[in-house]
Design a protein around this nucleic acid. Structure first.
Lengths: 232, 232
DNA sequence: GATTGACTCGTACGTCGTACGGTGTAATGG
DNA sequence: CCATTACACCGTACGACGTACGAGTCAATC
């Protein structure tokens, strides 16, 4: 009859009620935990893509019954949200960046963000449709603070933040989806070649095959930053 | 025993074999057709979102059995591809734009593209993971030709096209996902307010609530174009 | 010894995409 | 005129999915 825990998680260790018998430890470790579930979900998503995450498969990997997951997690959407945020943590800029170099800080954070999503290609397409977790909010907060410090007026701050967000998301989603299916892309280019009388220009430039994604990303980002805030 | 039609569609009217008895028409019109299926799929997607499209629901709306769809369509992914491309047709710039105004042409096509996707909010998030249909390829071809005409070097053409693509896709996917759930967004901002000690800057600027999306889109696009090609 | 709460799980239901094979009808051609 | 063929349609059934429901186990507490 246990009333299912609603949303908020146990946090069994927040009250530092002194555990008696600290000696025997193996007995009372619960098999499942939010952390273990999320970590395994990320593994599964990395290995099998977005369609590969299944409550049954997840439980299998964890060696538990399917319904046991629901004690720790509200539903599958919850798992997605948690996995997504887990992948978006930011540890801050390296020490090599001067504190007054706002542009370097912004670029580092955004490139790190993009790299994190490309390491987990399912995450990019997921981010726009899910609620914003704490880690992505921290990134936005940092972005906001840094731009403000760089002299962007309050009235233009939101527009600047969303412009950068949009650019990073668009670039990363596109890039990630191209990674997913190298052969599909080749097939598409082949189909394109067959129709080259209809699309001669993009066929000639091998649009679907040749692109320096990283360089193009950095270049467009620079253009955007040039426009959004005065060059230092 | 009919060998299921593979991929390519009937095109029963391509051979202009003269139909006898043009008088009685009602008898020989097939109930289903690719066009009717696609049109109804778009209706369903517009009304119920991406999760609302179901082969069963689609068949219901069309007054047919579920499996009848599969005569005209390979599978559900096929339906998605067709619906997506159906929504992305481009009719070209209005006459008010001078032929030598390459920038006006590009901006018009990109804004029209964005508007088309926002009219069908499911389309934006679908586009990156699906194959490129003829209509989106036409848009890319036009973009490529116009930029080339504007003086963008061949070596930089692909990077320029993808930069614009990325920007448009990012802006539109984000915008569309925000449209989907006005209340979710308000809830998020509320949750944010409760945590305002952690995210003071974005809370103060009401990042999740206040933004001039259309203006910001246009502004960022201008910055990008400024960088990609010389101002006229 | 009884109660409570934390945690685990099996069964079952409704929904989904679609493989398989059958039905009916118009066109064909002998 | 009948047999064959191709087209268009559809019912049944299967395996997979998310998850509601309620029952089980076990340690801590009263």
């Amino acid at each position: 009859m246990a009333a299912k825990r609603s949303g908020a998680q146990n946090k069994q260790f927040q009250q530092t009620s002194v555990r008696l018998q600290p000696v025997q430890e193996a007995s009372r470790e619960p098999l499942l935990s939010r952390e273990r579930i999320v970590a395994t979900a990320v593994e599964l998503l990395d290995a099998q893509g977005i369609g590969g995450l299944t409550m049954r498969r997840l439980a299998d990997r964890l060696g538990s019954g399917v319904m046991s997951l629901y004690w720790h997690v509200d539903n599958k959407e919850d798992v997605f949200d948690l996995a997504l945020d887990a992948v978006l943590e930011y540890r801050g800029p390296p020490q090599t960046i001067e504190p007054q170099d706002w542009r370097g800080e912004v670029v580092h954070m955004l490139e790190d963000w993009r790299a994190s999503m490309l390491r987990h290609p399912w995450s990019a397409s997921l981010l726009p449709r899910r609620a914003l977790g704490p880690n992505i909010l921290s990134r936005l907060e940092l972005l906001s603070k840094t731009l403000s410090r760089a002299g962007v007026a309050d009235a233009e701050l939101n527009a600047a933040i969303w412009s950068l967000w949009n650019y990073v998301m668009g670039a990363t989603i596109t890039r990630a989806s191209f990674d997913l299916s190298d052969d599909e892309r080749a097939t598409a280019q082949l189909r394109l070649t067959r129709l080259s009388e209809r699309y001669p220009t993009i066929e000639r430039s091998r649009l679907l095959l040749d692109n320096d994604w990283d360089g193009a990303f950095r270049k467009g980002l620079d253009f955007l930053l040039d426009g959004l805030a005065p060059r230092q």
